[in-house]
């Protein structure tokens, strides 16, 4: 393949990564935005979503589309419920102290990850996509003095991948409507502004926090259900999304929702492009160091505003 088609393929693959990442990182960002805590177990909620999707799909055993739809509903509900319970049992008891919350969520990370290893096992397991037709993509060529279309070999995307991008966009729009147009969303944003004040106005802050923590985990689980037909379910699969979500949330400005989406697109697409053209390890090293430097020298994020 020539450079042009190759780059286009990389960007398309990157867009799929970006879509999943936007969902996952949004979960982390919502939790940080409202509760001011960093959830290190976030990647494991993602992994759980994928594992539950596999479980639902294999249990139902019917048409892949049926299993997929069931998983898309069940996995976020189960994962969100588990997270809400964990919030009430653990995080609420330690008063959301920032450092102790990180230590506790590190503990949760290993409990979920190793618990999955013991039950689900160490193997990677596939889930069939609900539909998956190959769509060849055209490329322009300047030949014999005129512009012509042709279909380079290997330049294609699947209908499922396009669906992932669309589905992620829809979920994000729904989330935005939920946060801005519903009473529950309003309550969440009021709690984000000032939890003491919200408490004084009779908002049950404890329940709001449990709900937000559950919502954050559910978003990660949705991302995972979408990704699992492309990438198999595995008990260690939560690690990279956690790191990438951190990166996105940091670049986008901690707790800023529009910033999170922009950063997810930026990171997802560049991750796709870099890993097609360079060694993935070297790309990860560079990205990780770059983000550490952003935090060191511009802690409000690249897109965030400087606090006075």
């Amino acid at each position: 393949m020539d450079f042009g088609p190759h780059l286009m393929l990389a960007i398309l693959e990157g867009a799929v990564t970006a879509a999943i990442l936007a969902l996952t990182a949004m979960g982390l960002s919502v939790v940080f935005g409202v509760m001011r805590v960093v959830n290190v177990a976030h990647g494991e909620f993602y992994m759980l979503g994928a594992v539950i999707a596999w479980f639902v799909a294999t249990t139902l055993g019917a048409h892949p589309a049926l299993g997929f739809v069931a998983a898309l509903i069940l996995a976020p509900l189960l994962v969100g419920g588990l997270a809400a319970v964990a919030d009430m049992l653990i995080l609420q008891r330690i008063g959301y102290d920032p450092e102790r919350t990180i230590v506790a969520t590190i503990g949760m990370l290993y409990i979920i990850q190793q618990g999955t290893l013991m039950t689900f096992g160490p193997d990677a397991r596939p889930v069939a996509p609900p539909f998956n037709s190959r769509i060849p993509l055209p490329w322009l060529e300047w030949a014999e003095g005129k512009l012509s279309f042709y279909y380079p070999w290997g330049l294609s995307i699947t209908s499922y991948k396009l669906f992932v991008i669309a589905a992620a966009a829809l979920i994000l729009i729904a989330l935005w409507l939920f946060m801005t147009r519903t009473r529950a969303g309003l309550v969440m944003r009021a709690t984000q502004q000032d939890s003491a004040m919200a408490q004084a106005f009779g908002i049950p802050v404890g329940r709001v926090y449990a709900l937000v923590f559950g919502l954050g985990a559910a978003l990660a689980a949705m991302g995972a259900v979408l990704v699992v037909p492309i990438q198999q379910a595995h008990y260690l699969m939560g690690h990279d999304p956690l790191l990438l979500s951190f990166i996105v949330v940091i670049i986008g400005g901690l707790g800023s929702l529009p910033g999170t989406v922009i950063a997810a697109v930026l990171i997802g697409v560049s991750d796709g492009v870099i890993s097609v053209f360079f060694s993935p390890t070297l790309a990860k090293i560079t990205a990780t160091l770059a983000v550490a430097m952003v935090l060191v020298f511009r802690p409000q994020g690249l897109l965030g505003k400087k606090a006075h």
């Binding site: 503990g107 990850q113 190793q114």
Partner: peptide, 21 residues
Amino acid sequence: LTDAYMLIAGVVLVLLTMFLP
């Protein structure tokens, strides 16, 4: 009992932050 020894680490971490900081 298990190869998943980090599970024990996780449980102890959570219990410590909650009950024996």
